[in-house]
Structures are given as C-alpha cells and as structure tokens.
Write a protein that binds this DNA or RNA. Structure first.
Lengths: 346, 346
DNA sequence: TTGTAGGCGTTATCAC
DNA sequence: GTGATAACGCCTACAA
C-alpha cells in the first residue's frame, strides 16, 4: 500500500556510486566536489527514482531544521495574517518554513509554545508578542538562537526588530484631528507593558503638547488588551465623563472598533458627534461603517523584512543589530470630521 | 555562548542508568516497563538538567514527525484564520504542529508546497484547497498519508471531510429573499471546479425551482475565484442587464463585498435598491456598511473537527470514511430588505 | 526490570 | 574526486 520510500542509498546504488558521493552531488553546496560526469549521473538517478531528501535526517545531522518559530497573539486578529504571509513568503524563498504559535496574550501559553518550538529545534524565532520585559528572550539569547521582533520592540535586550514608528504615527493622527478643529481629544491607550501601547501613548502626549493642547486625565483610558471589548469599556468610561470631548484617538483599530460599539450604545453618531481614529489600517477596516480613519503601515513588508533580518542572523551575520522602522501613513476616511459645534476657539 | 544541549545520555548518566532505561522512563507509553524508583530518579535528573527531548531525532527514529501539512488558499482571507486556529488548537492537544502553506489558488504552487511538506515527512494533510478533480490527492493516498478536507470536498476519491451543507445554506438564503418578496433574484456563482462553488450554485437552482421561480440566465454570473474584484466584475455584468432584478445571492462573502463595490459605483443603495446575501459569515463582515446578511457556520469547529478526523486516521482508525457536515445558519442583517416597489406579484 | 546493539537517512571528516 | 566510516539523538527488539 504505502509507496516504498527512496533513500540516498538507493540513488547511489542506481548511479553506481557511494552514498557519500551521491550526497555531495545532490547538495548544491558541495556539487563542485564531484566530477561533472558523476553529478549528472546521480541527478538523473535521483530524478528517475523520484528521490526526495529526508529533511528530518538532514536536520539531525546538520543541526539545522530550516524551521522558524513564529509567535503571535492571535491569528484571528486581522493584523497578523498579512505579516505572517510576508514572513512565510520570504522564508520559503530560502527553504525555511514557519511554525505558527498563538499565545492569546497568555504568558504561560507563550512559554509552552516557545518550549515546544525549541524541542523541534527551530533555527530562530520571529515574535510579535514581545513584552517590554521578557525573560523568554533572555532564554533564547542564552541558547544562541536568533530572534527578531515584529511590530513590537523590547526594552531589556537589543533585538533586531521591524515595526512602525509609533510616535510619529500617533502624531499624524492627532495633527489630523487638530487640523479639523478638535481641541478636547480623548485617548484610548493600549497596554503599557508592550512597546506599541506605551509608545503610542507617549506619542499622544507629545503630540498634544506640541499642539498646545492639554490632556485631560479624565479623557484617557487604558485598555489592558488590544481587543474590541476592551475598547468598548474604555470608550464607555470616557463617554461617561465626556466633558466636551469631540474626538478619540485609539491606540489601535480593534480599540477603535470597540469605540464604535460604545458610541452606538450611547446613541452617538460618528463622526458627527465624535471623531475616531485608529491605528494599523487592518484589512477590511476601510469597509466599516463609517470607514475608519487610521494610521497605515505595510504589514506584509513587516513580515518580509523580519524574515530577512532573521535569515541574516541565522547565516551568521555579525554586525550591529538592525532596528527597522517603517513609515506610517495617515489614511483619512469617514470616521473623522470637524467637531459639531464648529471651531471651538482654543 | 550557546548553551550546551542536554541529551538523553546526560540524563541517563546523571540518574545512573543506561540511556535505554532513561528513554523508557521518560516516555509515558513505556514508563510502566521500568521500576517506579528508577522512573522517578530519571524524571528528577531530566528536570534538573533541563532535558528537552530532541523531536528531530525522535522523528527520524519513529518515522512520525508529529507535523501536519495544512494547505489553504490564502491566510489573508478572513475565513481561514479561525479554521486554522481550530486545527492548531486541537492538534496541539495531541502534540502535533501545523505547517501552513498558502497556495493562492495556484495549482503549481500547491504542488510545490505539497512536496516540501512531504520532504519534511508530515504525518498527514489538512486541505482547504481541494478541487473536485485533484491528482495530488491520489499521490497522498499512494503514499499512505492521511488526508482530511476542510470546507471543500473532492469528487474523485472519498476523503474524510468537514464542511458546511452548502445546498441547504444557499437554500436558506434564497428562502429569506423570497420571503421578503423578491422574485427576480440574481446569482454570483463561484468557481465551478470546487465543491463550494458548484454545490452552492446547484443549491441556488434548486431553491429557485422550489420557490416556483425561474432563473434568468442573464442574471447569473460566474466568478472564477472567490475574490472581491471578481465579485465586482460579476455584479457589474448583472447590473448591466439588470432586468428588474432586486436581489443578489453571492456564493460567498468576498463576492458579496465585491457586489457592494459595484452597487456603489452604479449609485445604487443596498438594501433599498438591491438586497445582497453572502455565504460564510466571515469575521468582521457584520461590521460592513450595511452589515451583510449571510450564511454562517462554525469556522473554528471546522478546524477542530478536521484535526480530530485526521488524528483518528493517523492513529490507524480503519472504519468507514467520515464525511461531516456542519449546519448552516441564516444571519439576517442590514443588506436585505423587501424590494423597493413593494411586493411584486408573482 | 535493565542493558546491549543496531539503525532511522544524512552529512562531515577522514583516508585513498 | 571518491569511498569508507562515524556520528547526529533517539527508540526498540532482543538478550540478560
């Protein structure tokens, strides 16, 4: 029933050479070590027999699994599929495959997945789950495993990373609101233990200062996860003590979507009663009602660049650690408009 | 620099036993072969040294990689992340991991990914890419590799599969439209070489017949992929020879979204001028403008059930092939309404 | 109950 | 340039 599997030995026999020679001929790296004649003979034999090298055996011997561990919070968050695709597409060009692990933001789960991947001898990690402080990263370093961070950065070690310039992005969002005439601007901030949450919050404060506006602490709510329901809760808090606020800057699109829900509950119209800006420009976010004004960055490219950095490290590139920032871009859509009461003098 | 790696031999030495004994103690399956005393000693040694079994070596020896190949069209299609998560969650419970491959609907790419996965000795395949006729499936069977199909089914072999009852689903959609008073109903059909496209089209025809309505061939357009732009093209065709049509049944949500775009181009309002129903109830589709009326089914469960079936086969379950259909559910939202002109007599 | 030995398929390191 | 040999880390008859 099950097809008999062709091994290197079979190819060697068929070509009339020693297995070691067949191995050399089959491996592009070492092909120049054998005579052109035997190489073609071996290749022909391999093709004829339908030889497929056993990646497992090769891994055992070479201690390279050509496998990358990818940790993300949740594949269901539309931000991640494009990143993962970028990563996989770039990795596969170099013969690597990705093992995807979802952590759901749970540290223990993250640890388990991380360990399982180590057991499978991944050659490196691409993490979109980094917390600012992260003992796991220290483990990876100790094991000599290359790590690259995506979307987020960490503070305790210096890791290669690919992310968007969060401060600059949120500043673009706030400027946009200000230019529309908004003065009392609320903020739904993200978790402060991850770089995206922290940096976007800092960026918000800086942008407000720069615009000569004061931040009312009543109008700042902190979500402890980048999730729709957290965004709704925060928006509710803000709406409760509304205090003349006419716009909300959310730390990401999920929180903004939650904000939409809270507005609807409160019978408020977006953008007529309240402008909303998000961050990420998730797929399909432009099809919401209203289409969300947000900060875009090239998700797919985050993946490809991260893969690139990782492959460089795996191949032993020494040099300085590369920290890559991709440029944010403001996408003006239907969720932002001038405040209802006309320009409120400052 | 790199942490020295702990092997079975190290554990054995530490515990003062032979590696073979350590192996038996460490493996739950064979633990009862060693004395309880030594077992605990070995376990302690393993814990102390931080032993992590080398999955690669184990795979080579046992010829089980505990790895599953998963082929999907495109991770960016929001239908797939929940399926993949279901699959991974269920698989990980049994110590399996998934290798995800995106085919972009390209047969050649599918072939390549399939082969790469074979080289890595996956223990089975979960495919969401099945065409009705599919030589690759024959290959997998010949190799004795378990396969389970997700979302789609194939016609040339009998494979375990998990999918939604497409005929029934589309019939619910058409009934809904009919009950609203629609009589001239258009159809954006999907590719006819995959089961979802074919069965939903057949279901449409059957449902129309059942409702005593005739299908105007002018009002049927075939998309050659389940993609937004294809949906838009098809909708344009239908709108061009509109012929009093007041509703469109799309073979999936992506096509329905394309239909939205075409309606907007044409200055038509949904649902006032045209009702639209989709299929799948993709994540976030309820947040569109207007929220899409569609046919839902439990995506996550498609993944978990598929994983379950696959694991059963891998573990050697013989028995008859299981074909699992999950029940569809009509989700009535804002994209459907009675036709503008009131009830047109039949 | 535990030890011995061999091998899974490949490649690295020697010789020749 | 090619062949022989050993080893990667683990598991499993078989023997003791």
């Amino acid at each position: 029933m099950a097809e008999e599997v062709v091994t290197l030995k079979d190819v060697a026999r068929q070509a009339g050479v020693h297995p070691a020679t067949a191995s050399r001929a089959l491996n592009p790296e070492t092909r120049l070590l054998v005579s052109e004649d035997t190489a073609t003979r071996v290749l022909a034999a391999a093709a004829q027999l339908g030889y497929r090298p056993n990646a497992v055996a090769r891994s055992l011997r070479t201690r390279r699994s050509h496998t990358i561990g990818v940790l993300i919070p949740d594949l269901n968050n539309p931000l991640f599929p494009p990143i993962v695709r970028g990563l996989e597409d770039r990795l596969s060009a170099d013969g690597y495959v990705a093992l995807i692990g979802n952590t759901d933001g749970d540290e223990q789960r993250e640890r388990i997945v991380f360990e399982q991947m180590r057991a499978r001898h991944v050659d490196g990690y691409a993490l979109a789950t980094a917390h600012l402080q992260n003992p796991m990263l220290a483990d990876a370093v100790r094991a000599g495993l290359p790590v690259v961070l995506m979307n987020r950065t960490a503070e305790d070690y210096s890791f290669p990373s690919v992310s968007v310039d969060n401060e600059r992005g949120i500043q673009m969002a706030v400027s946009h609101l200000v230019s529309l005439g908004h003065r009392r601007i609320a903020c739904i901030a993200g978790p402060q233990d991850v770089s995206t949450g922290l940096n976007r919050y800092r960026g918000f404060l800086a942008a407000m200062r720069e615009a000569g506006l004061t931040v009312d602490p009543e109008l700042v709510a902190f979500a402890d996860a980048f999730a729709i329901d957290k965004g709704r809760e925060c928006a509710r808090q803000i709406l409760a003590k509304r205090a003349g606020c006419t716009a909300v800057a959310a730390a990401n699109d999920m929180l903004a979507v939650g904000c939409y829900a809270a507005l609807e509950e409160a019978g408020l119209d977006c953008p007529a009663d309240m402008s909303v800006v998000g961050f990420n420009d998730m797929p399909f976010i432009d099809m919401l009602r209203p289409p969300l004004t947000t900060i875009a960055f090239p998700h797919y490219q985050v993946g490809t660049e991260a893969a690139q950095l990782l492959i460089e490290r795996i191949n032993g590139a020494e040099g300085p650690v590369k920290i890559l920032y991709l440029a944010p871009q403001l996408k003006i859509r239907g969720s932002t408009a001038p405040p209802a009461g006309g320009d409120s003098a400052k």
